Simulated scan of single mutants.
Amino acid sequence: MVIPVHDVNPVRRTPWVTYALIAANVLVFLSTPGIAGSVAGESQLAQLCHLHAFLDHYAAVPRELIHDQLPGVVPTGEVAVGPNGPGCVIGRPDYDKSPALSVFTAMFLHGSWLHLLGNMLFLLIFGNNIEDRMGHVRYFVFYVVCGYAASYGFAFLNDESADPLIGASGAIAGVLGAYLVLYPRARVWVLVPFLIFLPLRLPAWLVLGFWFVLQAVYSSGEGVSEAGTVAYAAHIVGFLAGMLLAWPLKPGTPPPPEPRGLLFGRRARPRHTW
């Protein structure tokens, strides 16, 4: 797996929506009960109960999205001691949940720092150019539509699943798909783990194409021990949705500037103009 760190593709305007999305994701993560509890010194079980209750309320659940059936009982966030020891209290939900709206709220939830930072890195590198090309409002609508397409696409393929679906990766996959359509020849600096992290500057079509192939392989269960813990199918659907939505913009998109200096680890030949 390659780790992108920077693209050679300057923008004309400040990507305020991309920055706002990153800030919102970080703030929501820090305010998630299970995360906040770890800072406040709560017990591990109390953190887990609070987190489960929070996700049942705000995360997208495939079975709820497809069948519109909410569970009769959910974790309340409280801890009680029973005959078999302490555990999370189960009770009737004291809230009304809209499955369709939960897709939007789930886009701002993450399960760990690694999950959050990985998503935000990809959004920061590739989102600014898509926002620059689409404009602030259209870019935000595009981002949300890709997130919905990814969530519902995954839900249709796993319509009986009751596992919560969280994360911005479906929407960000749409951003990657749009970038591949609009800027396939843009150069991207990546770190390739080969004994050490080797810096290379590669074309976007190679970086993003390789990422998409990995998602397809992982979605099939090949190469990973627990493919079910990550919604790879959502990444695939989001990526394809982003490509489809960005395609009409391709004819009017100016090409990225031709980079100079290192290319594939070697110095490019100077070009002369006459």
Results as ranks from 00 to 15, higher is better:
Ile3Phe: 14
Gly261Ser: 11
Phe156Pro: 03
Trp113Ser: 13
Ala80His: 13
Leu101Met: 13
Ser219Gly: 15
Gly37Ser: 11
Val217Pro: 02
Glu258Asp: 12
Ser31Phe: 07
Leu263Glu: 15
Ala23Phe: 00
Pro184Asn: 12
Trp247Asn: 05
Leu198Asp: 02
Glu222Ala: 15
Tyr179Met: 09
Trp189His: 13
Phe142Tyr: 15
Arg201Tyr: 03
Tyr218Cys: 12
Leu165Ile: 09
Arg138Leu: 13
Thr105Ala: 10
Val224Ile: 13
Tyr218Ile: 00
Leu123Asn: 01
Asn128Leu: 04
Ala150Asn: 02
Ala246Val: 05
Gly252Ala: 12
Glu42Lys: 15
Pro203His: 11
Arg187Leu: 06
Val61Ser: 05
Val230Met: 07
Arg63Asn: 12
Ser98Phe: 00
Cys49Asn: 07
Gly167Val: 01
Leu214His: 08
Pro75Phe: 10
Glu64Thr: 07
Lys250Ala: 15
Leu21Phe: 03
Asn129Glu: 05
Gly174Lys: 04
Glu222Ser: 12
Val28Ile: 14
Pro86Trp: 00
Val73Pro: 02
Val137Trp: 08
Asp68Ser: 08
Gly37Asn: 10
Thr229Asn: 10
Arg271Gly: 06
Gln215Leu: 07
Ala173Glu: 05
His52Glu: 14
Arg187Tyr: 08
Thr76Asn: 10
Pro10Gln: 10
Pro256Gln: 09
Asn128Asp: 10
Ser98Val: 07
